[in-house]
């Protein structure tokens, strides 16, 4: 699946630094939080234009890994390299949850505009060019309909789209999304995944998207970074999502079952009993 995605992907724009297209590199990174090792010896790299799923169950360390990339968590060992100058408009981030007060005087479009210039000092005046960029972005994520509404009054899924627009409008090279599908229904989830895959290819952005279920991402993922038991494996979906690789990661026998275009990972040798726990 990775190979035909490669064929359809446009080559990098002429003049772009072609020597290295790596937007993120983790080298043997370990993270401890509150005295506990949450991530151990994670190595991983991401190229511009790649769509990578960050998969793991609750508490596996997905949020921690994304915050690590942003420099909001410091590694106990190892190095994190982003050749984009670290935090700033070159890295877009959609946090897992942000709680917005319902009555806050801030429209959806104001939040998107802050993605453009929120880091600048002064009140700033936004000209027609900026307004057009905000409109275009709202349109692209399907949020134009509620652009004028108070952002705190929007539903979880609507806020999710506004947040994606906020992250994308500064034209980042790396986009980190923490469980963006959690608040969306299946159809909306598919739409967002397709949109992101489209953007990754078109604008040559590296995307790292976390989810506890890999299935909605299967059609678009170029790569997967799978977290379990504090450790990680990465590679193409076919390499990673196999009985051998995941059994080694979990440190016990797990079974990968492919059925009806879905992937199910179950514990133990008794594959017929998916309720068997780990």
């Amino acid at each position: 699946m990775g190979s035909d995605a490669d064929a359809s992907r446009p080559s990098p724009p002429i003049g772009a630094p072609s020597a290295t297209n790596t937007v993120l590199e983790l080298d043997d990174v370990s993270v401890s939080l509150g005295g506990r090792t949450v991530l151990e010896d994670v190595s991983f790299s991401l190229e511009a234009g790649e769509f990578c799923g960050l998969i793991g169950s609750n508490g596996a360390g997905k949020t921690t890994l994304l915050r690590l990339v942003l420099g909001l968590v410091t590694p106990a060992r190892g190095t994190v390299r982003t050749p984009l100058g670290g935090r700033g408009p070159k890295i877009g981030y959609v946090p897992q949850k942000i709680s917005l007060e319902p009555d806050m005087p801030l429209r959806a479009r104001d939040l998107v505009a802050l993605g453009l210039d929120g880091h600048r000092l002064g009140p700033g005046r936004r000209g027609p060019a900026q307004r057009a960029a905000v409109d275009e972005m709202l349109e692209a994520v399907g949020a134009a309909r509620f652009a004028e509404a108070r952002v705190g009054n929007l539903s979880g899924g609507e806020q999710q789209r506004v947040m994606i627009a906020h992250a994308l409008i500064s034209r980042p090279r790396l986009l980190l999304l923490d469980e963006p599908l959690a608040n969306l229904d299946i159809r909306a989830g598919q739409e967002v995944v397709r949109l992101l895959a489209h953007i990754a290819a078109e604008q040559h952005i590296g995307i790292l998207l976390s989810a506890h279920d890999m299935n909605p991402l299967l059609p678009v993922m170029d790569r997967i970074l799978y977290l379990a038991a504090g450790r990680a494996v990465s590679g193409s979906t076919d390499e990673v999502v196999s009985t051998e690789t995941l059994s080694r990661l979990y440190g016990q026998r797990v079974e990968v079952i492919r059925t009806h275009g879905r992937v199910i990972v179950v514990a133990g040798t008794d594959a017929a009993d998916p309720t068997h726990d780990f």
């Binding site: 942003l70 909001l72 801030l106």
Partner: peptide
């Protein structure tokens, strides 16, 4: 709006 959102910028 959010500590993480701002810090990420």
């Amino acid at each position: 709006l959010s500590y993480d959102l701002a810090a990420a910028r």
